[in-house]
Design a protein around this nucleic acid. Structure first.
Lengths: 337, 337
DNA sequence: CTGAAAGCGCTTACAG
DNA sequence: CTGAAAGCGCTTACAG
């Protein structure tokens, strides 16, 4: 393919002039501009992004480091997060490089990415990569908090514990005292955070969260989140007699609603339902419309990207940002008093 | 940050030697290797990907050209497709550059991407970018067929026309003669393809597809796909008296089911419902379980990536690949005879 | 407004 | 096994 040299020669000008015609960084006379453009078109010349990046030390690309799980499945949360990153980046003229390649065993094989900055998902404990990006002088923003917490690194995160406290408090204040909690899979830190938040709400109301009212999703036991919700209601409703159920996601709630319909339980009249995340975005399209928490995975991504953009402008910027998930009241909960 | 020169000097060797230590492209003695590695570590040296790319004319990055809609929403189809692309690319050591930046008005501003090849979504009619990538010598694979069809470009696509023929044929053979078609937005080529496939099925059965039985989604008129399905049933059921409805996606079907419930229409007893795509993956979690088409968006992405990897190895490769969408029979359709 | 030249940080024949 | 030098295709002071 044609290079800047080819164009310069054929147009009878210097490379610098051709460069300026395309970058517009210094004024070029109209005649010359036209001649260069014409020749460029004739030759099918397009500036080489890599060469330009090398010369300018700037790529206008933001990296997103996101190890892909072995089964290759991205969660809805990840997907929305990516979406947020992309939107925010493209707003500022950055493109996004998805780096899903697994880490090489040999740290010497570690190669820099052609990026101006990096967003890293789910940092591990004592993640060595954090120091590496520091050394390379690549601005870094984490999604999820660093462990141990490091005041020198920027990150964004959700307020999971506080959130389930809020949800629990809302239901308890509404007069519900017996609440079924269909939590996330127990190996997720978010499940832990949520349970402790909910337990705290119970305590605050002089009650306690009974173990048998907490069920965890299990990929092994449940064929799908919806099935998980469906089965759990059928298995427990007679026995436990709760007046409200908190579900992991809206998909789980979908199963709860179905089971309720079958059992003749009116939602929200005899059973209130509330979902801790709005995965499928279908909450307001259900019958009844589902009261749910907007986790704002997308916002999380957008905030991370926003922070990164700032950091790329000024590497001294250092900040933490907690994205407040928001409880959206719709039609699936009822005040008992 | 440290460069190859710094390392070379401090280790008392040439740049070429340092280069070889990292690339392992030619053997370096053990002593020298160790010395270089030590110095590199001390200096915090990591090879510069951009400089390497320029020298090698190879980036190990695949581009994914995907204009982001103004509201910034990616459809489930796009998301799954991206997922497929990423999986396949990372399998072959490629990272993915998401290029969501809107096309610049000025074609002279068009800049090459730092990629070894490109996957482009939804090519437009007479898309000028196709020729551009050709000129730049960048291997290109389209997702969706080029318009007009160009034998020189590689692409993957669904068999949309045939598929809706199949769906129509299935319903007609089942004894349905009056079918409502809630099609995609009319500006999408897929909407055209589907309608012509369905019309063909009608003809084959000696019938014809009446215009008023075909409704197109409109972002302006409908607040959501689900709403589109819901409203459309309410607006037409008394007047048109169909026994089956084909919907654009499963989300539209969700609205249809809700409207049917309200109107006391039994699905599938008095109304059969079938969705042409399985966007939310909720088809089998609905009540009744929805008969729907599995478009295999992810497969589409993976196939595109696979083709691209081949093309990057050998630019002469040229191929079309049709991903067969599959009609999955569940519980929402009834045989009338 | 334009040119000549150095420089960005690597790789790669060529030589030894 | 290693070095010196040219080259990848741009940008950017410096000079005029």
């Amino acid at each position: 393919m044609a290079t800047i040299d080819d164009v310069a020669k054929l147009a009878g000008v210097s490379k610098g002039t051709v460069s300026s015609v395309f970058s517009k960084k210094r004024p070029i006379s109209k005649e010359v501009t036209e001649r260069v453009l014409e020749v460029a078109k004739e030759l099918g010349y397009y500036p080489n992004h890599i060469a330009r990046s090398l010369a300018m030390k700037k790529t206008m690309i933001a990296g997103l480091k996101m190890p892909i799980s072995k089964d290759g499945i991205m969660s809805q949360f990840e997907i929305q997060m990516i979406n947020g990153v992309i939107k925010e980046c493209s707003k500022h003229g950055y493109r996004v490089l998805l780096d899903t390649l697994p880490e090489h065993d040999d740290p010497n094989q570690f190669s820099s990415d052609p990026v101006d900055g990096m967003i890293m998902l789910n940092p591990r404990k004592h993640d060595p990569r954090i120091a590496r990006y520091e050394q390379m002088g690549i601005p870094l923003v984490l999604v999820g908090r660093p462990d141990p917490i490091d005041a020198k690194v920027s990150y964004v995160d959700n307020n999971n514990t506080q959130l389930s406290y809020e949800v629990g408090d809302y239901l308890l204040r509404s007069g519900h005292t017996s609440i079924l909690f269909l939590n996330a899979s127990s190996d997720m830190t978010v499940a832990y955070d949520r349970e402790s938040g909910l337990a705290e709400a119970f305590e605050r109301h002089g009650l306690s969260l009974h173990k048998e009212y907490v069920i965890n999703y299990s990929r092994r036991l449940h064929s799908s989140p919806t099935e998980y919700g469906y089965i759990s209601i059928h298995n427990t409703y007679q026995r436990l007699e709760y007046t409200a159920v908190i579900t992991d996601t809206d998909r789980v709630a979908l199963g709860v609603l179905r089971a309720a319909r079958e059992l003749g339980i009116k939602v929200p009249d005899t059973l209130s339902v509330i979902a801790l995340s709005n995965d499928t975005k279908l909450a307001q399209e259900m019958t009844p419309k589902l009261t749910s928490v907007e986790l704002s995975a997308e916002k999380l991504g957008a905030e991370a990207a926003h922070l990164l953009v700032e950091k790329m402008r000024d590497p001294a910027v250092m900040r933490h940002h907690i994205v407040q998930a928001e409880l959206v009241y719709r039609e699936s909960c009822k005040q008992l008093r």
